[in-house]
Design a protein around this nucleic acid. Structure first.
Length: 296
DNA sequence: AAAGCTTCCAACCGCGGACTT
DNA sequence: TAAGTCCGCGGTTGGAAGCTT
């Protein structure tokens, strides 16, 4: 069953709001609350439909709306949430105080989406648009970093890791790649700065998805290097203290059960066993709940 | 300076879920 | 239970502003 459009009444004004109309709406809502949006226009003396009033209020006139450019932190939050829940703009907006779903949607469509496409990330899947190994090879070529493969250039760890990526494509589960783009930057933009070689794992620490694993973490090194240090993390039951599994983890690690579904264990936490390497910052930054966040 | 193009964003549209009658 | 209504959401649009040629 459909419903008639709310604005099909003749004589109802559409289009941009005038300052006078804004003032009437603000004054009415401040004095009476919005109540029924349907009834509001008549009560407030506005020749608008209720829907138009609601939109104007929620997207523009509300006193708690934050104006101005999105900060890098807000941008990262949007990207992270979008990689998890997709185009749920209202849900994303709940994590960005003062920002409206419409504003976030516009920012995504006009900035972030294009940005991802430009750097080779599919904005809908948040995965590289090309084969990750091919992408890495291409980036290496672009950055003219072939010299790094020479012994001693980055240390054995880094060289082994790069060789792993280039020579062992079959071991990389490309279907599980995910991207938290702001934490990564193309190698070509690193201007000779390389990550701490000691923090790079040996290829053996990268388990491909296996059917028997409690969960698996898939490294996301296909596109660039995380700005945050890598480390090994332990998934632990906080009540029994049982170690449920250990994995090489990146800031956007994928935690899955053996059947590929999302982990859902209560009482679990992620802890770090790498000593000097802190847990990925986004766990605490982004999720209030210290239990296992569900990411995909 | 002006024409054409691109970007940005406020506002609209239509759908679907929830609620009411 | 079905029909009617309201609200909120995501997709899309149109025009203003900015940029390029």
């Amino acid at each position: 069953m459909g419903r008639p459009p709310c604005c099909d009444e003749s004589g109802i004004k559409k289009g941009p709001w005038t300052p006078e109309e804004d003032q009437m709406l603000i004054q009415y809502i401040q004095e009476n609350g919005h109540g029924s949006w349907r009834a509001l226009p008549k009560l407030a003396g506005l020749n608008r439909c209720g829907k138009s009033c609601r939109l104007r209020w929620t997207n523009y006139l509300r006193p708690d709306i934050k104006r101005g450019k999105f900060s890098p932190e807000e941008e990262q939050t949007i990207l992270r949430l979008h990689s998890i829940i997709g185009n749920k703009w209202s849900a994303i907006a709940t994590h960005l105080p003062g920002r409206t779903d419409n504003e976030i949607k516009n920012f995504w469509n006009s900035h972030l989406k294009k940005k991802l496409i430009r750097i080779g990330i599919d904005p809908m899947t948040h995965r590289p648009t090309m084969d990750p190994v091919a992408t890495l090879t291409q980036l290496l070529c672009l950055a003219d970093l072939t010299g790094i493969m020479e012994p001693g250039a980055w240390g054995d760890h880094a060289a082994r890791f790069l060789q792993y990526l280039i020579q062992s494509p079959a071991t990389i589960n490309t279907s599980s790649f995910s991207s938290i783009v702001p934490e990564m930057k193309p190698m070509s933009s690193m201007n000779g700065q390389v990550p701490d070689a000691a923090s790079l794992p040996s290829p053996g620490l990268f388990p491909a998805a296996t059917s028997s694993a409690e969960f698996c973490c898939v490294p996301e090194m296909s596109f660039g290097f995380h700005q945050q240090p890598l480390g090994n993390y332990i998934k632990q039951d906080s009540t029994s203290n049982d170690e449920l599994g250990a994995a090489m983890s990146t800031p956007s690690a994928l935690l899955r059960d053996a059947d590929g579904s999302l982990g859902n264990e209560d009482n679990c936490s992620i802890s770090n066993n790498a000593g000097s390497v802190p847990p990925p910052s986004f766990w605490s930054e982004f999720f209030d709940d210290p239990l296992v966040p569900v990411l995909i």
